[in-house]
């Protein structure tokens, strides 16, 4: 009886025709490459950097190499800092956006999204002009006499975090905005009615009820920030490697595709783990992608 649903009848033909291009697309561009990555992560390389299709676990053992672990550590700390700063900036921003008039809300939304119509490489390069040794910020600080020597602001971990926050902020604002916007305003009134001032209302009512949005935002920021290698390349100048750098180097420079594949699989595993935690906590998958 189970197979009743999949029986081809004259009715299911149009459905089949409609769905099949999307299915073909997904299989061709996502499922097959992913499967290929998974397979080669168990392979080794030949002398001439070709892939040797023989089963080995040495790539997975190599993950626990000290240098690799330190890059993981660095990458995770960059991502945690990025997520924290994004929350601190995005929450008040989203809150004001909900509270303000429709016109100002639209303006804030445009202000948030407009930079993303420009290439992100160009936008990151412009930070160099601002923060570099001979950049405007250093020039200005010397001019007003706060410092004598230009400070090294670029190519530090802070610069990488800055670049990440700058690149990923909208992904934090949007889910938080959605959840604050949906919050039942009478709950805030009820809290005030029961004798709570704004701070208490925020701590006991608003924050707990908007936490799913924050968590969704954290996932949307945390996961990409592990992989955005060009941000750490441009802002960190190669001194601050993240997982993304490691992977791109395996594919582009070291020609060790199997190890690159292993690192990618690890990244996917981390992602799945975080999403699992999110859904376990009652979050909805739709809200991660829909906004």
């Amino acid at each position: 009886m189970l197979f009743d649903k999949t029986k081809f009848t004259s009715k299911t033909v149009p459905l089949f025709v409609m769905v099949s291009p999307a299915t073909a697309w997904l299989v061709l561009l996502i499922a097959i490459p992913l499967l290929y990555i998974f397979v080669i992560s168990f392979c080794s390389t030949t002398e001439s950097h070709n892939i040797a299709f023989s089963f080995t676990l040495k790539n997975y053992i190599k993950l626990f190499d000290r240098t690799i672990l330190s890059i993981y550590w660095n990458s995770l700390s960059v991502s945690v800092l990025t997520a924290v700063f994004c929350v601190l900036i995005a929450y008040p921003f989203a809150y004001i956006m909900v509270k303000t008039s429709p016109l100002k809300r639209t303006l804030m939304m445009v202000g948030l999204m407009l930079p993303f119509w420009t290439n992100s490489l160009i936008r990151l390069y412009s930070w160099r002009t601002l923060l570099g040794r001979n950049g405007y910020v250093n020039d200005f600080l010397i001019y007003i006499g706060v410092i004598n020597e230009p400070i090294e602001m670029m190519f530090t971990r802070s610069a990488v975090v800055l670049g990440m926050v700058y690149t990923l902020l909208p992904f934090m604002v949007l889910p938080i905005f959605a959840v604050i916007d949906k919050l039942d305003k009478t709950l805030i009134e009820a809290s005030k009615d029961l004798g709570a001032n704004f701070i208490k209302t925020f701590c006991y009512v608003i924050l707990p009820l908007t936490a799913p949005g924050i968590f969704a935002g954290v996932i949307m920021v945390f996961i990409p920030s592990l992989g955005l290698f060009f941000v750490s390349d441009l802002m960190g100048g190669g001194n601050n490697q993240i997982i993304g750098n490691l992977i791109s180097r395996q594919f582009k420079e070291a020609f060790n595709w199997p190890f690159g594949a292993t690192l990618s699989i690890m990244l996917i595993a981390i992602t799945i783990f975080l999403v699992r935690v999110y859904t376990k906590k009652g979050g909805k998958l739709d809200e991660l992608g829909a906004v």
Binding site: D184, T186, L187, E189, D193, L194, N197, P208, L209
Partner: peptide, 20 residues
């Protein structure tokens, strides 16, 4: 006088119970 300083309480139309 802010709402939280009044000795008045409200029962809301949609109850407004804290769901969490």
């Amino acid at each position: 006088k802010e709402p939280f300083k009044r000795n008045i309480n409200t029962v809301f139309q949609n109850y407004a119970l804290f769901p969490h």
